[in-house]
Design a protein around this nucleic acid. Sequence first.
DNA 1: AAATAAAAGCAACATTGTTGCAAAATTTAA
DNA 2: TTAAATTTTGCAACAATGTTGCTTTTATTT
Lengths: 139, 139
Amino acid sequence: MKEEITTILKRNSLSVTASREKILTLFLGQDVALSHSDIEKKAGEKFDRVTVYRTLQTFTDKGIIHTIPTVDNAILYALCKDNCTQGHHHDQHVHFICDKCAQTFCLDNVVTPDVKLPQGYTSQQIEVVVKGVCKACKK
Amino acid sequence: MKEEITTILKRNSLSVTASREKILTLFLGQDVALSHSDIEKKAGEKFDRVTVYRTLQTFTDKGIIHTIPTVDNAILYALCKDNCTQGHHHDQHVHFICDKCAQTFCLDNVVTPDVKLPQGYTSQQIEVVVKGVCKACKK
DNA sequence: AAATAAAAGCAACATTGTTGCAAAATTTAA
DNA sequence: TTAAATTTTGCAACAATGTTGCTTTTATTT
Ligand SMILES: [Mn+2]
Ligand SMILES: [Mn+2]
Ligand SMILES: [Zn+2]
Ligand SMILES: [Zn+2]
């Protein structure tokens, strides 16, 4: 895993630092989206809050992670699984928020549906967030 | 308009106060979504910030307005046009954010598309936010 | 008009996010 | 391998946003 992380960072011409390794480990270790405060907690007191902000910004810029909109004013971040690059994300997948466990998942295989807009509107990007009960919680 | 506002408030068993009238006026006066800070600015220095927070919360609870998720950590609020009620919103419409004018619109006539989820997931609510160029900006 | 109920304002505080700059760590070049 | 150059980090100070308890004011009911 350590190797994978180095590869990702190098590929994006980022220096390999402790905080970047740690934060990337968190994302690779599970498949749910994380908020800034999740990361701040899980990364422990090892890193400054500012560093976390800057790291998430850098990763987003580089296309290593992407953001997920929520109604409750908390940006979520998740790993990009497609080959997103600097300034060019193409995660056209649906996101799912579970009402029971409150976790957010990338449904990488569920492609964003098309939307028929009224005359005059041009679509550039479509975000779809579904709320409901996830697979694990349904049982 | 003043009359309409009173009707709305009474219907929701809310007392008619200056701040509620003012904030509701802002929503009725145009068809774009407003952020908390938009409202704070437009409502002027007349009201305390806390009052604005509480009013938006109350209106949302009652189903007078609804929230719109955005990727940049700024909740937007817009009038409910359906007959939403306490604890029961049903604004199943698409939202549109214009990249040029940065305004957000409710596309009340564009119904949220269905999404086919993987086995085991249950959908309860679907949020669709489209980014692009709006009618006015296209010209 | 008085009593009751509800909302507003204020203060104090918590959380979240931003910026400039010096110190530390990483990368590059010698 | 070491020194220089570059990048990143941590710190401090600050700004913006959001929350809570309590008192005063305003609106509604009797
Ligand atoms: Mn995703
Ligand atoms: Mn809407
Ligand atoms: Zn769940
Ligand atoms: Zn526009």
